[in-house]
Amino acid sequence: MTRIFPGAKDYKTMVVKIGKEERGKIEETLGWELLPGQRETFQYFDMLDAAGTRIGTIIAASQKGEYGAIEFVVGIDTKNTVCGLYIQRSRERNRAFKERAFLDLFVGKKIVPLSGIDEAYKGKESPGTNAVIRGLKKEFAAYDMLVSK
């Protein structure tokens, strides 16, 4: 967490329930159904400074890859701009998606519209790159719907 927010002094776990109507809107925005385990709640972490003021958000996410879950951590600043992204765990054979050249394409992007995330990468697709892009869109759609609005 401090890798993305070095000025943070603490964090607070936030859990938001996803209502049936909200889930429907998120899935409509994405164009696909949320996976089991993603449908009931949305969890993120408010990053706080010494005074307890929120300086950004961390989302620890996972998305289905070819060889199991790909776990990644993404940071969003208070203006809803991506300020950091790194992979935590994955068992994929093709590891191109772990390279900074790929991950840094999303840093500086606004979380919405989601088309900005789609358009950031124009290279060769792999299960890993697709999972990261799909995972980012899923998290950002949920955050925009459940937290920002």
Partner: peptide, 9 residues
């Protein structure tokens, strides 16, 4: 269950 105050968990 995690409980938090104003400055974090």
């Amino acid at each position: 269950k995690t409980l938090a105050d104003d400055k974090g968990d």
